[in-house]
Design a protein around this nucleic acid. Structure first.
Length: 437
RNA sequence: CGGGGCGUAGCGCAGCCUGGUAGCGCAUCUGCUUUGGGAGCAGAGGGUCGCAGGUUCAAAUCCUGCCGCCCCGACCA
């Protein structure tokens, strides 16, 4: 992509509305534009990152055995009357009427729709387990949207729903998601801590929030240091095997968000050297809720004994649009955003410091062409070098390949790694090799 | 929903208290000079001062109502 044809409206100053660093940087980098409180348009750079994150989530969900569907944003109120949630949900639900005066709503979540789909087709335990997910826009009419896309009213969420014949099987589904989530966040360059979450009236131990560490995070987490160091299980585990030990390893160690924190237990269970408290952002929430929807909505399956039983369900959410902000909170410096390679809007930017200079143009074009498989941005804009450096540091593309008249005269270019600031001057071939691996 | 604050050019702000017909920086456009970390000079364009009423000879400024946005709190499977 040539910058001269792209649309990347960067700003030197942040609007005064933006209070937290990710919001400021997203606006300054030209990623989003606010249309209303908690509602944003995604500009090309923001959309590129959003799609990258979405794809990582998709790949890891598929790997863990989930199957993608796409449910509508608008849902029929009658489904929510079946589950009993239409009246319970309150003001957060955006309610709409169509031309026939039918009650619709903009989905804040999709348990009802997925349960309706499930019950229409699946009748036997032999067709279980199933895990269906979608990545779709949700709307929750928050009383106080804030912090940009961190807490918007409209947001992109991956929501998965598991269906099993009994609790033991549901636990296996839960474990798959638990581990898949750790892999997702690891691939996004994040350190994530699973903390036990309130399960509400259903009880049990099957609910976890995933909190990513970021100094500017909103909530505080307390955890055993070993849990953070343990990292993700990786993609090559046996997804159909017994995952309980891997999960147990990670749930045995103390981890709690501020609301669930028990200081006495923390001190008792965790040796002083292992105690860690940090700021974080909740980006995922998984839980098992059994028959909460299947029973009222009559999603029954026939078991091996010929008896119909309500299917055991769980749901698993990842805030995809929130992750864009979360990653920035976790990865930025004074100059701007530092994208992990896995979600960077471009893999590399070739910076032409003197467009119009035939020799410089030739080298820059050559580099741009050679990098075509690495999602390159070519800064061919007619700006001064300082302005280019500032803007490109701001948008955080991982590699900067700088082509200027001085270097070209000496047969070299400069390669800069955004994350470390490390620069090396070297021949073009060597620079290309360093980027393409 | 309780409390607080703010709406003046694309962005950041001043002007409001004490009414007299709108200004600064950045950005934009033109020209020249520049060109390795957000250039300099010269010139130019752009604002029904959130909206609607009211007071007044006169309202960005005072009064009333409404709308929008932000922050703190409460809330947030």
């Amino acid at each position: 992509m040539r910058l001269s044809r792209y649309f990347m409206p960067t700003l030197r100053e942040a609007p005064s509305d933006a209070q937290i660093v990710s919001h400021q940087l997203m606006i300054r980098a030209g990623m989003i534009r606010q249309e209303a409180a908690g509602i944003y348009a995604w500009l090309p750079l923001g959309l590129a990152v959003l799609k990258k994150i979405e794809q990582v989530v998709r790949e890891e969900m598929n790997r863990a055995g989930a199957v993608e569907v796409l449910m509508p944003t608008l849902q029929l109120a009658d489904l929510w009357r079946e589950s009993g949630r239409y009246d319970d949900y309150g003001e957060e639900m955006l309610r709409i009427k169509d031309r026939h005066d039918r009650d619709l709503l903009y989905g804040p979540t999709a348990e009802e729709v997925i349960t309706d789909i499930f019950r229409s087709y699946i009748k036997s335990y032999k067709d279980l387990p199933k895990n269906l997910y979608n990545i779709q826009w949700k709307f929750r009419d928050e009383r106080r949207p804030r912090f940009g896309v961190m807490r918007g009213r409209e947001f992109l969420m991956k929501d998965a729903y598991s269906f099993d014949i009994d609790e033991a099987a549901a636990r296996r589904s839960y474990n798959r998601m638990f581990l898949a989530y750790l892999n997702i966040f690891a691939r996004l360059g994040l350190k994530a801590i699973p903390v036990r979450a309130d399960t509400g009236p259903i009880g049990g131990d099957l609910s976890h929030e995933f909190i990513i560490l970021a100094e500017t995070g909103e909530s505080e987490v307390f955890a055993h240091r070993d849990l953070v160091e343990m990292g993700a299980p990786g993609p090559d585990i046996d997804w159909d095997g017994d995952l309980a030990p891997l999960v147990a390893q990670r749930t045995a160690l103390y981890a709690a968000s501020d609301e669930m924190h028990d200081a006495a237990r923390f001190e008792k269970e965790v040796p002083e050297a292992g105690r860690m408290s940090a700021r974080g952002i909740e980006v995922g929430h998984i839980f098992y809720f059994g028959e909460k929807y299947s029973r009222p909505m009559k999603a029954f399956v026939t078991g091996p004994d010929g008896k119909d039983v309500p299917v055991q369900m769980g749901s698993y959410g990842v805030g995809v649009s929130r992750l864009v902000a979360g990653i920035i909170e976790a990865s930025h410096d004074e100059a701007g955003i530092i994208w992990p390679d896995s979600v960077a809007p471009f893999g590399v930017v070739v910076i032409n410091l003197r467009p119009g200079d035939a020799a410089v143009d030739a080298v820059a074009e050559q580099a741009y062409a050679a990098l075509s498989g690495h999602d390159p941005l070519y800064d061919d804009s007619d700006q001064r070098p300082g302005a280019k450096f500032a803007a490109l540091d701001l948008v955080g593309i991982p590699w900067q390949l700088i082509v200027g008249p001085k270097g070209v005269a000496d047969g070299v270019v400069e390669l800069k790694r955004r994350a470390t600031g490390e620069r090396q001057t070297l021949p073009l071939d060597a620079a290309l090799k360093a980027i393409t691996g």
